[in-house]
Design a protein around this nucleic acid. Sequence first.
DNA 1: TGTTTAAGCGTTAATATTACACTTAAATTC
DNA 2: GAATTTAAGTGTAATATTAACGCTTAAACA
Lengths: 232, 232
Amino acid sequence: MGLEKQHYSLHPKFHVAVDCIVFGFDGGELKLLVHKRKFEPYLGHWSLFGGFLKEDESLTDAANRILNELTGLKNIYMEQLQTYGEIDRDPAGRVISVAYSALIPAHRYSAAYSRQYGATWVNLKEVPRLIMDHNQMVEKGLRRLRRRASSQPIGFELLPGEFTLPQLQALYEAIFQNTLDKRNFRKKILSMDVLVKLDKKDMTSSRKGAYLYRFDRRKYRRMVDAGNGFAI
Amino acid sequence: MGLEKQHYSLHPKFHVAVDCIVFGFDGGELKLLVHKRKFEPYLGHWSLFGGFLKEDESLTDAANRILNELTGLKNIYMEQLQTYGEIDRDPAGRVISVAYSALIPAHRYSAAYSRQYGATWVNLKEVPRLIMDHNQMVEKGLRRLRRRASSQPIGFELLPGEFTLPQLQALYEAIFQNTLDKRNFRKKILSMDVLVKLDKKDMTSSRKGAYLYRFDRRKYRRMVDAGNGFAI
DNA sequence: TGTTTAAGCGTTAATATTACACTTAAATTC
DNA sequence: GAATTTAAGTGTAATATTAACGCTTAAACA
């Protein structure tokens, strides 16, 4: 602090915010979690989950804290996306905003939470007008999600720990916005040998039932160490 | 400003810095441009090109200004990489740093500039200990460069406007750290139809000489619009 | 018991990738 | 000016990957 005074005190300081984009999957479509903003300006407008960085926390900590405060969510997959610094992006003052992108299975955000915190899922194809540059952030996050999903095993963050192959396929179809061949999809995903088949079936979506699988991080790591990459 | 006072004034403010990573290619190896820091703390230590954001400029503007002030470089390819916000990343005070990654053909940074500004190229395999988290930034930038280079035409930013196919191949070999088959490489790059062959040869590297090519952004766009992607 | 519904499974054709060696153009040397 | 040297430039066959395609099965329900 003494040092800071000495060296940097001539330079201007800025408000630094964090905005969290939360993507979800409900078995059918990709969703975005939004809420109505709790403070001015834009109080009551649709918004991502944003807040200000504090003195005693890192950006990552801030992202987790803010998301938790505004949604109740904790321990979820999150990665830094991009930082937005246009001069007039916020009409109430100069704010540098660091956007984070989070992924959860939509069912993890229950109706109860939703009522308590007032956050709701919207279909990614019907995202309302969000405040400031938040729509831009969502677009960027979505592009990144699409790119990442085909070369890294992040799709599993959007599914429950146990899932069926038809569910997994539906997820990738939702992400890539196309249809996939059932047999080719199974062949490909199973040939990577990163899933373990459980002795249980999910009986909710068909009479026959579909076997449940888990993504095995250890197997994945082994595959990577062997020089192979995840690809779908 | 009135609004800012009203709404945000309770929140803390932070110094915001920009750090520029400059990657170059000299025909043989990938290089990193570094210099000895011009201010305390760490005055005289190896560093990326960093400076503080000003009130009246966007992050992008700051990145361009800072790079220009410290190296003389202007109008070069640059993209935002990642923002670093650990509490004690800078011993002289809390600073949020936004890292940018720039690409240039190494020859564009001449010996003259180098003398004037004191910046020098170092081989990416022999990067010295840099200040603070700058080595981490370089690693991240390099990983991103590797990923991007195989799916987007950013490699051309590392070559002069006119280049030969052997030069282009050498570039990708340097980026991916492997060797490529001459015939297969040509086949692939030419099949995308994004290069135009010139009626000139570069005679500096062989008796026979090698034809010069240019990357044609218009052709590239046409290819993308047709639904095809760049891939090497 | 028959019907319904989604799950699960294998093969062939088409396409993309890899491996591989000789010829050519121009400068340099003898 | 003939012979030599050097990197540029070119095609084809083998292999691997991807894409296309329809029938059987398990379990619930009528």
